[in-house]
Design a protein around this nucleic acid. Structure first.
Length: 424
RNA sequence: GUGGGCGUAGCCGAGCGGUUAAGGCGCCAGGUUGUGGCCCUGGAGAUCGAGGGUUCGAAUCCCUCCGUCCACCCCA
């Protein structure tokens, strides 16, 4: 190794980040809340590989979408398999549903997950090349009641986190029956206005007309305002489904904003689509989003099976919790810090710590330094008690126990230590 | 993929052509005889993001790259 190579300072790759102990309280709170709420709704845990056959996404996400065209991490392994780092989780879970014959389980199959996703984006605040998300999928029941359930689950999750000010945007984008006709109507409308819109929109007109509605360019707004909406063109079944969902949401007292311009970035969505976003203005706003995907299982080679789910980015949740200074449960510091002096003291300290942990009491053993140092250290890590094991204690068989909160000290038999520190 | 701001020790941050590269936080140690939080003293820790150039001389000026942040795009 050359001198130059030896001096390399490694960094986490662009767009990735380390989650450090400073963030532990937030991350574990989000995780615990997700697990708890998923349990409340009867959802079961699933985990799928971080990479798999690239076709799982190439076949489902849609050509012309950013995710497939330019954001996937594609690679070949040593055996020549064409693989991709998971850019989104739903298709992966659906693949598992088919592979493991979950159609023969009671329907719908309710699943939740924590997963990393990878997209080759240009990073910015709240946007990463690797991010984590909490998500659920309910597969095998096309009823609007399941749509309401999934949205309710996500709202309950945010509520449990104490995230305030999120607005639910809701839309129906129709299905194979009505969407083609709508897209035709949209194209017809835009055909006359095509010279008035931005270059991006001209491209959208060709490749992905639904996204025309999503354009933020000033010059396109007037055109969008006059465009036909999907709402007025939904086929009877889609309209009925959407109306039912709205009734259920009203029943659940879940407020929402109808947003006829809400379009998702993946092609497999049908009917219900939704997004939760903070009310403040700003780019990377969406914290959680999802929708129904009634054709997806079939695209992956399974029997026609309806499904709906959402994903919610944990980095963005944590960002919003911090912005709002929302309280999160603190991480418990070690209960007992075991300070020692002399060699025999260290061995005894290890034994005492082992015994405390066996009794369910957290304990850390001080390093080889002066007692003064060990006390400073104990204070710095926030230990409630310090147990001293020095020559006197080794001789007497009792440890000196100091309550760091009030400074009171007393001698305690080793066997009684766990009990002595158990209560406040 | 496009445009812009920024990059000095783990963190914050002064210096902006010639300094042994401030200061604060944090870390480590000491303030006598086995003990924390406050205070005092000392110490470790900086290829001044990287490479190239201009100059007698560059952390300070120029170029390239990398990283980061913001907006767009897209999305969680």
């Amino acid at each position: 190794m050359s001198e130059d190579e030896r001096r390399i300072r490694f960094q986490a790759p662009r767009g990735t980040k380390d989650v450090l102990p400073e963030d532990e309280a937030h991350w574990r709170f989000v995780r615990r809340t997700g697990e708890r709420v998923a349990g409340l709704f009867g959802y079961r845990y699933i985990e799928t590989p971080m990479f798999e056959d690239a076709r799982v996404w190439l076949r489902t996400s849609g050509e012309g979408t950013e995710v497939v065209d330019k954001e996937m991490y594609l690679f070949e392994d040593r055996g020549g398999e064409k693989l991709a780092l998971r850019p989104e989780t739903t298709a992966s879970v659906c693949r598992a549903y088919i592979e493991h014959g979950m159609a023969s389980r009671p329907q719908p199959v309710r699943l939740f997950y924590f997963a990393q996703k990878f997209r080759y984006d240009r990073p910015q605040a709240g946007r990463f090349r690797q991010h984590s998300e909490f998500g659920v999928e309910a597969i095998g029941d096309g009823s609007a009641a399941v749509d309401a359930e999934v949205i309710d689950l996500l709202a309950t999750f945010y509520d449990g986190l104490g995230l305030a000010g999120l607005e639910l945007h809701l839309n129906s984008i129709g299905d194979g029956q009505c969407r083609p006709a709508y897209i035709e109507a949209l194209r017809e409308y835009y055909a006359d206005q095509i010279d008035r819109v931005c270059p991006d929109c001209r491209m959208r007109y060709e490749k992905n007309p639904m996204r025309l509605l999503d354009c933020k360019e000033e010059r396109c707004q007037e055109v969008i305002a006059g465009a036909p909406t999907i709402a007025e063109r939904l086929c009877e079944p889609c309209a009925t489904h959407f109306a039912a969902l709205r009734t259920y949401l009203d029943e659940l007292a879940i407020a929402y904003t109808l947003d006829s311009r809400l379009v998702r970035g993946l092609d497999y969505y049908t009917r219900t689509v939704f997004e939760f976003m903070p009310q403040e203005e700003g780019g990377q706003s969406t914290v959680g989003a999802g929708g129904r995907y009634d054709g997806l299982i079939e695209l992956l080679g399974g029997q026609p099976t309806p499904g709906i789910g959402f994903g919610s980015g944990i980095e963005r949740i944590v960002l919003n919790l911090k912005r709002q200074e929302a309280p999160v449960p603190e991480i418990e510091p070690p209960r007992v810090y075991i300070a020692h002096a002399s060699e025999g003291g260290l061995a005894a300290a290890l034994r005492v710590a082992h015994r405390l942990r066996g009794a369910g009491v957290s304990a850390v053993v001080g390093g080889g330094r002066s007692l003064k140092s060990q006390f400073r250290h104990a204070d710095a890590v926030g230990a409630r008690y310090v147990a001293v094991l020095g020559e006197r204690e080794l001789a007497s068989g009792e440890v000196t126990l100091r309550d760091m909160r009030d400074g009171q000290q007393r001698a305690v038999a080793e066997a009684a230590l766990a009990e002595s520190v158990a209560h406040d």
